[in-house]
Nucleic acid binder design. Structure first.
Lengths: 219, 219
DNA sequence: CCAAAGATGGCACTGAGTGACAGAAGTGTC
DNA sequence: GACACTTCTGTCACTCAGTGCCATCTTTGG
């Protein structure tokens, strides 16, 4: 995974152009809004042709959300690397927290980006779509975990004394169980993100996420 | 809201055309796929102009997902009408179950539609978007419920006491709690729907939903 | 009958995304 | 350096979704 391979000049140029496009695009987006910015404008501002833009980004949304795909893979492998004894929610949380929005110059622009993200329908939709891709990546990993711990004794772990359960949740299809947990966690993450933006970044995202998860699991 | 007004001929015609378009569109979608079907084809098959199509449906996706908006409103008012003593998950489940996919000729085509829905990215994205609209509709209703039942316990710190800072402004926000629950429930519904399709409709949707919720809340 | 309101179709336009092609520039080999 | 080979680039042309405008026809109501 570590790109220690020789960064050939071609590759370096490519990365540079990529960055260049993303830079001028984000500038335009924050300046006049996402929808109001056309690909032609981005291309012109970057000094490339319209066609070349699409050789670097499949869609206009990908300029904002492109990194998410890679992040999904990172989270998945992090989840797989977590100790098997860790209960699913704990492992998932750890994996999610480990890889958060990396490239964020300052909280200010991160907030503005968040506002744009939650205010632009197409962006929101694509964002959800990427999170769905995360789901497909994380579910099999978590399902393996569940299968592994189900073989061992039942109730070996214990977040708290929840003896009132009784429902054989573990007995159900581990694939479905994993899907439910992952979907729930990602929903909480989304909610937390929205709340974080709405509060102007005053409350740390972690806390909002934890609150959301706690609410779901104990209300 | 109750349109007891006389269904004027104009209105009846309009509904008829609406149905006509939806019919030939769905036929084409199931026949050659959603993306492969153009609006021109739908218009031609219906015997109207391309321009008129967009007077009945804002987008091509709305032919498939248009009804969802109205359903969201129905679910929201059903939730509001639920007895106040009902715990949130119970009330939410009841409201969701009450309004499910109404127009379904047979299970066969419902399945085919489901497959198409989960296989077409743009449809999937729009679907998520509509569910997000549901969220915005349901959250305030559920938040009111939570506020009403939280009269007794005034403990400002109820969930996830993660001692950090301690900003007075935050605290157990019912809005966030409601958002978390609603998002979790809708995530479970989505998961259940996907599982239902994958199993060929053999397992009832209700059971899959209940399993998903049980997993989230007791794992 | 006549005027207002609505529905329709045709036209032109923007804007995203794609395919094909020719040429420029980097890369490796002799 | 000359040579092929690969990759990147811009240009042109195209499809398709969605929108605005306008002329025309039909319904509706007085």
């Amino acid at each position: 995974m570590t790109d220690d391979a020789p960064p050939s000049l071609r590759e370096r140029t490519r990365r540079a152009v990529h960055q260049e496009i993303a830079g001028s695009a984000m500038r335009l987006f924050l300046e006049q809004g996402f929808e109001a910015t056309t690909v032609d404008q981005i291309a012109a501002a970057t000094g490339i042709s319209r066609r070349s833009f699409f050789r670097y980004f499949a869609t206009k949304e990908d300029v904002v959300l492109g990194e998410l795909v890679g992040r999904g893979h990172a989270i998945a492998s992090e989840l797989a690397a977590r100790p098997a004894e860790e209960p699913p929610w704990t492992a998932l949380r750890a994996a999610l927290v480990r890889f958060r929005d990396t490239r964020t110059p300052d909280t200010e622009s991160e907030l503005r980006l968040g506002e744009m993200l939650y205010a632009t329908p197409t962006l929101r939709a694509r964002h959800l779509e990427k999170q769905l891709a995360w789901q497909d990546l994380l579910v099999p990993v978590l399902a393996d975990r569940l299968r592994a711990t189900a073989v061992e004794g039942t109730g070996a772990n214990g977040v708290g004394g929840n003896g009132a359960g009784g429902t054989d949740a573990g007995g159900a299809d581990p694939e479905l169980a994993a899907a439910a947990i992952v979907a729930g966690a990602l929903a909480c993450l989304d909610i937390a993100g929205a709340a974080w933006v709405r509060r102007g970044g005053t409350v740390p995202l972690d806390k909002l996420y934890d609150d959301a998860v706690a609410t779901i699991r104990s209300t």
